[in-house]
Design a protein around this nucleic acid. Sequence first.
DNA 1: CGAATAGTGTCTATCAGACACTATTCG
DNA 2: CGAATAGTGTCTGATAGACACTATTCG
Lengths: 243, 243
Amino acid sequence: MRDGVGSGAPAGGPGREAPLTLVDVVIFAVRDERLHVLLVRRAEAPFAGRWALPGGFVDVARDADLEAAARRKLEEKTGVHSPYLEQLGSFGDARRDPRGWSATHVYFALLASAAVALQAGANAEEARWFAIAGERVREPLAFDHGRIVAAAVARLRAKTEYTALPVHLVPGEFTLAELQRVHEVILERKLDKSAFRTRALAADFLEATGRTRAGPNRPARLYRLKRGREVVFFPRTFYPKAD
Amino acid sequence: MRDGVGSGAPAGGPGREAPLTLVDVVIFAVRDERLHVLLVRRAEAPFAGRWALPGGFVDVARDADLEAAARRKLEEKTGVHSPYLEQLGSFGDARRDPRGWSATHVYFALLASAAVALQAGANAEEARWFAIAGERVREPLAFDHGRIVAAAVARLRAKTEYTALPVHLVPGEFTLAELQRVHEVILERKLDKSAFRTRALAADFLEATGRTRAGPNRPARLYRLKRGREVVFFPRTFYPKAD
DNA sequence: CGAATAGTGTCTATCAGACACTATTCG
DNA sequence: CGAATAGTGTCTGATAGACACTATTCG
């Protein structure tokens, strides 16, 4: 039945409505020991005045692919060019957008908070960081963006359990204690220092820079992310092997 | 910049092209100790004659949401109404479809092979099961469907390592040995019987039916999937806890 | 020296993995 | 009884988790 003449003519075909195609980005950063997402206030209908995820229509002329579209939205808001970016999934139905049947492709990005300097939108849109409380933001959001944020937070938490993803939320040089703190902030629970360090170092995604961070105490070694180790799973026994 | 008047008018707006919106389904089943996917032969251009994933345009009038669209495609091909269905992700760019910029929302489904009786398509399309070799199918597929199949296989394998997903590939009543065999077929490696059984039973997603499967040997206990335990993660220590 | 945080060592319970062993049926 | 597969028991090595201990700096 695939695109049979009578049943599925392409968009723009005779008398057939096509879904709207959008891209949205859930941009995470840790600030003041709290997980935050970046939201923009909508200037126009629908949902004028409400806060929403940075995003919008895919531009067939400018965007080579979905990820490029997501990257463009991200750059417009933050000026950041190549953060960690991962596809979360897509959300589409008849009712989420009053303008019509719409589907949005959602990505999530992890920013090292230090790198963030919000860009004034071309049309002077407001952009602001919102703290995550539980799995959501306190504000009611435009469209189904509240649900999307919750899904992104759930995904980030799940992955934090068994991967080193949170390194991307930390500036280029950092101490193990700082990295641990970010993990704790995301998971909303304390972690054991000794176990954390063993695990992080065993996963072989960090390298010491040789420098240290001074303080009113013993100085801490500084680390950076090893090249080529942007996505690391913690080593753990997965499954009964035989053969 | 979201849907600013001059930069992102909705589809159908004045002189602006909108992406095509499709849904495709990767339908898995295990037959003859091999993982298979269901493909259909395209009757029309583009890629007429090539094998492709069941799928096609989202029908704004009939499909309430993306998952419903995927379910519709699945039912048209297999007659199966409620198998395990999960979103894989979306794939969209300017070149994957010669008809224009297109984005497809991909789902994957797990069928218990016994339940499968292929439906003749309305326009007598052919449908056939193809064995997975490595991460792909031997045939060259239409569009970027080869890549999509590979991504689906990778996801299924990854999840088989730490969840009980493969129960959905096994008929309603089954022995532990049969379930183990399916895991082995997906992972393409032998598993240790003792460890597999301990793990499966400890995860508490199976219940004995009380019946047994006879054979030229000691009869095996039959199990079924416990209600409400459709998605089960194997218990394993994830992370250093403290507090 | 004391405060403060960095970093290490030790013990224990759990579990994957390997593998051998026992159990129960059919012919 | 022997073949064949179901199902269990035992040992070992790895590691999460708890927690105490040592190390190094500043003021």
